[in-house]
Simulated assay, not measured.
Amino acid sequence: MKFEVMTTDQIAARIADLLEEQLKQKPDSVLGMTTGSSPIKYGIFQEWIRREEAGELDFAGATFVNPDELIGIAPDHPESYYTFMQEHLFQHLRTKRGAAHIPDGSAADLEQECKRFDQVLRDLQFVDWQLMGLGLNGHIAFIEPADSIPVTTYVADIYEQNRPSGSVHFSTPEEVPSRTITIGLEAVMKSRSIVLVAAGANKADIVAEAFQGPVTTRVPASLLQLHPNVTVILDEGSAKRLAL
């Protein structure tokens, strides 16, 4: 596990550099995406769009995969991860080819949808380069803390603190999704390269717990200590409790 500490305004460029290296080595890479606040707050997707426009990134051979989706809303719902990716990244890329692979949270048979998505991942031979964020409770993708974590894609309950909130697109609290489809440990551990970003002093405790504490399913990110190729991108605030 490699740690890189930088200012927040350097994060987007550093992650874009890592992505650029990946696509030069393997233009047909399977790229794992992430939603949440980090890609937008730190300008990560915006930097990819800028570099593609400048001819520095070419996604023509790449395949995009998202590891999770909210359950109970259609893909075209304003709060779906499908919509998030379309609005913030995919519709802006000129060299992207083909549809992204994202679980369908509106599927009538969720168990079958989990199996279908697992087959998609296996057909792709899993992900070459996975971008991840880190939740305040240690979740990665939407793998929430639990006594045990499934190996394959599964339906997960969302911790209350992580449910979408404050959206005008939900009329009542009951409409806010409380479950997701998310990848399991197989997909995480078979990702050939993982880049995780966590910034802000409010992440300092969970960063230290996840990456220098015991490996436990109660802190899902701690399982990345067992992965052979993880780069953790931090700022000074999130890194302040690490013994680097």
Rank of each mutant, 00 (worst) to 15 (best):
F142L: 09
K240S: 15
Q91P: 10
A107Y: 08
Y82T: 12
L223G: 01
F59G: 10
A210R: 10
Q46M: 07
R241T: 05
T83F: 05
G72E: 06
Q46G: 13
K24D: 02
K190W: 09
T35H: 01
H92W: 11
V5E: 12
L93E: 07
L110R: 12
G138D: 03
S191Q: 08
L121V: 04
D28V: 05
Q225I: 03
L89V: 03
S167L: 02
K115A: 15
P39G: 06
D76W: 06
A239L: 10
G213E: 09
Q46S: 11
G32Q: 09
A54C: 03
F117K: 04
D17N: 13
G135L: 12
L234N: 11
G98V: 08
Q46H: 12
E209Y: 00
D76E: 12
T7A: 14
L134W: 07
R192E: 15
I71K: 14
Q46W: 05
L121N: 05
Q212L: 08
D109S: 08
A187E: 06
I140W: 02
P214R: 07
S38K: 06
R51M: 12
T217N: 12
K2M: 06
E20N: 09
S167C: 06
N202P: 00
P177Q: 09
K203I: 07
T34M: 09
M33L: 15
L226S: 09
I102Y: 03
H169L: 05
T180M: 08
V65E: 02
A146K: 11
V65R: 06
G200E: 03
L18H: 03
E20G: 08
Q125E: 10
K96L: 14
V232E: 08
I194W: 09
Q112N: 10
S148W: 12
T153K: 05
G166C: 05
F45S: 04
I233F: 15
F117N: 02
A243G: 09
P39W: 06
T34W: 03
K96Y: 02
F170R: 08
R218W: 02
L121A: 00
G138R: 11
S37Y: 03
M6I: 10
A99Q: 13
G72S: 08
A16Q: 07
H101L: 05
K26W: 00
L110P: 02
K41W: 03
H227M: 02
L234E: 09
